[in-house]
């Protein structure tokens, strides 16, 4: 069963999600990646209100057509690079949904439990498919500072597809696969 999740992502909605559940997201979504996370971590002012919101680790291909921004494609980027910054951002801004690929580490997992947040994995490389669910570009922030790929894009999406891989109770599919594949590897090399 695919669960529909709509902005604002309140604590009650988030606590209801479990690892392995597939979801579709609708409503407001902010992109942010390497420089944005470092910027917030260092105390930079956030140009949007992230409370009960979602950060999507992505750097889209965006072009300007007749003065209007068009997101051509936008798939997820590797989330692990934001591991040093993510937990503080969750704590300070009360972001409730992180979307990316590859999963995140212990600090983020613990912050998900403590503050009520989930990590969703989107399909890496499926950039055109995911861009299909972008219905509107409201604006772009920090564009001059960070460039188009690293800017904060303020989007509205509908039916954006992902799977819960770290839930608010602290279960992590990434940790599970890491452990089971380690065991399999040891068996192969015996």
């Amino acid at each position: 069963m695919i669960k529909e999740l709509e902005y604002p992502f309140t604590l009650a909605k988030i606590r209801d999600l479990n690892v392995g559940q597939r979801v579709t997201i609708s409503g407001r979504l902010f992109t942010g990646r390497d420089r944005f996370h470092k910027y917030l971590f260092d105390g930079g002012k956030c140009p949007v209100d992230l409370k009960d919101g979602a950060i999507y680790h992505a750097g889209p291909v965006a072009i300007r057509r007749e003065g209007v921004w068009v997101i051509r494609v936008a798939g997820p980027t590797t989330s692990m690079r934001e591991e040093p910054y993510m937990s503080r951002i969750i704590e300070q801004h009360r972001v409730r949904v992180i979307i990316g690929k590859g999963g995140m580490g212990e600090m983020t997992r613990k912050a998900c439990v403590k503050y009520g947040c989930v990590y969703l994995q989107a399909i890496g490389g499926a950039a055109g498919l995911l861009a299909e669910s972008i219905k509107e570009v409201h604006g772009v922030h920090l564009l001059a500072e960070f460039g188009a790929a690293e800017a904060l894009w303020d989007l509205t999406v509908k039916g954006f597809s992902a799977v819960v891989t770290i839930d608010a109770s602290g279960k992590s599919l990434h940790r599970r696969i890491e452990r089971s594949s380690k065991k399999a590897l040891e068996k192969i090399l015996k």
Binding site: A126, A127, G128
Partner: peptide, 22 residues
């Protein structure tokens, strides 16, 4: 995931858009 990948491949070919944003 594999189904979505194949769907994405067909879509980018049809729409003339990059397969991946990176």
């Amino acid at each position: 995931v594999l189904n979505a990948i194949l769907e994405n491949v067909a879509l980018s070919r049809k729409n003339d858009t990059p397969i991946c944003q990176d």
